[in-house]
Simulated assay, not measured.
Amino acid sequence: MFVRAYLRGSTAEQDAQRARQQLVDFAGQHNVPIASWYVENASGASANRIELRRLLEDAHPGDVILVEAIDRLSRLDRDDWRELRAQLDAKGLRVVALDLPTSHLALSPAAADDFTARVLDAVNGMMLDTLAAVARKDYEDRRRRQRQGIEKAKGEGKYQGRQKDMSKRQRIAALLQSTHADGRGYSIRDVASIIGCSTSTVKTVKRDGP
């Protein structure tokens, strides 16, 4: 059994690595190493995610997909979720999510027992479907509220579109121009870690300026 961790940020402005330490700590508490990481900034409502596809291609029967929460894995609509579930089931993969306690037992030695494994699969399959549906509803509700807010702002002549965080962009630019004590410049990953943003945001500032 390999544990494959999947981290996802919804947009380029979010830090997909935010929950990395939580997953490391969780795996350590269960005495299992994380074999590989798959990190991307993409909408959970999209079925076309490069790193998720790569994970599914790399995984072997019995492997575990470790996520912070089910909504990190999916905010898919019903048909796309069914297709993803079918792929998980076909490859014999188990999903372990920090927000789904019953799934944690998949990391227990007892889960190797055939009867226990079948019971766990049945229970967690039902819970996975439920939480995936909840995640999709939350996504749709937020999108609806966002549209309503935009329409209201437009009606009042207040809508200006999404604004850049100029303070953050200026801090990123300053770090990119700075150096370590030994004269080395800060890498894109260094800057993203210090600022608490995605590497995509740092790359954008590096390319376009603040």
Rank of each mutant, 00 (worst) to 15 (best):
A90Q: 10
A153V: 10
L84Q: 07
A111T: 08
L23M: 05
L66P: 00
E13M: 07
Q17P: 02
G92P: 11
I65M: 04
R207F: 04
K137W: 14
E83W: 10
E68N: 06
S43N: 00
T102G: 09
L76Y: 02
A86D: 06
T204V: 10
D15K: 01
P109R: 00
T116D: 15
V64F: 09
A112D: 14
I188M: 05
M127I: 10
E151K: 14
H60T: 12
G62C: 02
S43V: 08
A69F: 03
A27F: 03
V191W: 03
A133D: 01
S193A: 15
H60I: 05
A174W: 11
N31C: 03
G9Q: 00
G92D: 01
D25I: 12
R171N: 14
E40L: 05
I34D: 00
R82A: 10
Y38F: 01
R171Y: 11
R72K: 08
S198Y: 01
Y159C: 03
R82D: 11
G209H: 10
E40H: 09
T11Y: 01
E57D: 01
V191P: 06
E51D: 06
R189T: 13
L73Q: 00
V191A: 03
V32I: 08
D208R: 09
F2K: 13
R20T: 07
R184N: 11
D141E: 10
L56F: 10
K91T: 00
T204D: 14
R142L: 07
S36T: 07
A122S: 11
Y139L: 01
V205W: 01
F115K: 14
L52P: 01
V119W: 06
M126F: 10
A42G: 03
N48I: 12
R94F: 13
P109F: 04
A122D: 11
Q146D: 11
R72T: 08
A69R: 12
Q87C: 09
V3A: 01
I70D: 00
R20I: 05
